[in-house]
Design a protein around this nucleic acid. Sequence first.
RNA 1: GGUUCCAUCGCCAAGCGGUAAGGCCGCAGCCUGCAAAGCUGCUAUCCCCGGUUCAAAUCCGGGUGGGACCUCCA
Length: 465
Amino acid sequence: MYIFDSVKKEKVEFVSLVPNAVTMYVCGPTVYDDAHLGHARSALSFDMLFRTLKSLGYSVNFIRNFTDVDDKIIKKMQKSGKSLKDITEYYIQRYNEDMDALNITRPTLTPKATENLEAMQDMIKNLLSKNIAYKISNGDIYFDTAKDKLYGKLSNKVSDETLSRIERVSEKRSDKDFALWKACHENDTVCFDASFGKGRPGWHIECSAMIEKHTKPIGGYSIDIHGGGADLLFPHHENEASQSRCATGHELAKYWMHNGFVQIDGEKMSKSLGNSFFLKDILKVYNGEIVRFYLSSIHYRNDFNFNEEDLLNSKKRLDKLYRLKKRVFDASVSKPNVEFKKSLLEAMSDDLNISVALSLIDEMIAKSNELLDTNANDKNVKKEIMANIEFINELLGFGYQDPFSYFQLGLNDELVAKINSLIKQRTDAKSQKNFALADKIREELKGMDINIMDTPNGTVWEKIS
RNA sequence: GGUUCCAUCGCCAAGCGGUAAGGCCGCAGCCUGCAAAGCUGCUAUCCCCGGUUCAAAUCCGGGUGGGACCUCCA
């Protein structure tokens, strides 16, 4: 397995801390709103890593957190009058629903910040006792970045210019110091007790504390892989790495991986620009698997430019897989083709090279169709093809639907009945050599986005686009 | 301003020093009543200029043009 380490900035061979086992931690969402395309991309990227590692035989401990205490959530509380728990539980459920729709595997552990306050407080106490953290007059506790000689080595991004952009708090020892604990003020509703004063945790401390709590350090590292969106490298991951290093004496992660951003029609997607695409809006129009296939079709480190035209094009590629599946649907599953399985796994083992993987699948589809053209009833051929598709699903997470219902997505019973009736009429017309009428009916179906195909076993149809 | 990534066929997109994968679109053929689907074949010398090398889309230098991060963000 080779992965691109975004700290070393090069592709490196992955060697797990413990043989045959991997611990990976990915920064999850702050749950104050519905999940957008960016959340999907991140989850999808690491889902594919998760699946690939498992297929390679590793037992994988995959942790992804929920940030369920945060200023943005508090703002939402004030606006809506709802409780913190009402808001976060709702959006956690929404997040899970949306990710499930994309067939994203649930991590082995999904800790919440509010359920790990003790671990955070322990780490803050630890840092205070070492005089690496300090309290200012309003009660806030800051991390003293000057105490960590390695601060900045992760993102390589801490210049004076950069610092001038970070929020200035006069009592901070240095502008780069960041909050570990934000003290309660008179009107604050979200307050947790701690020996060093009531308050709530800063953002960065939660990941460090949860990793520390849920994993066992080995070989100088807490975990094998730490992942997240490209924007998190600085300051979030820099700060995480620094506070963990200072608190525990060892490094946080052996490898760091960051997924690229999603743009919409060439524009950056962000809350402030107001062009944020919620997953739920897309899922109303397109089946989750189609969205998954599209979003995963480009290498995880590249920027992804989302647009509907490309989505529709990528769907055509997935259609071909399902047409093949239709041809073998009645076969049981045997073992996948050895060469195919090996090459697919090899592609994904090369820093998740999905493009090569997809081209291998296209190749398999063409070969299989050819085989079926000449050996239509060879059970062993069919079984192997089914097994190939099954393996694609295991490794890449698509191809799992019933092939017939896949081509009927978005249709209700009434429409299906009408389509079948039209096809019957056309078949009758054909048998009477009334091709003019048959073609007219075909046109009518096409107007309904229905494609028909005459096969030796009768006329079959598909919903297109 | 600092840091950083990228530029490959009409569109999407691999490639990581050894002579340009794949998909969409298009064209031709087989198949078909005609189609559709499927199969087969065809379609690029890699933004520009230098350099290193027997050999560069791939490495180095310089341009040009985009993007991202540096503020909450996946």
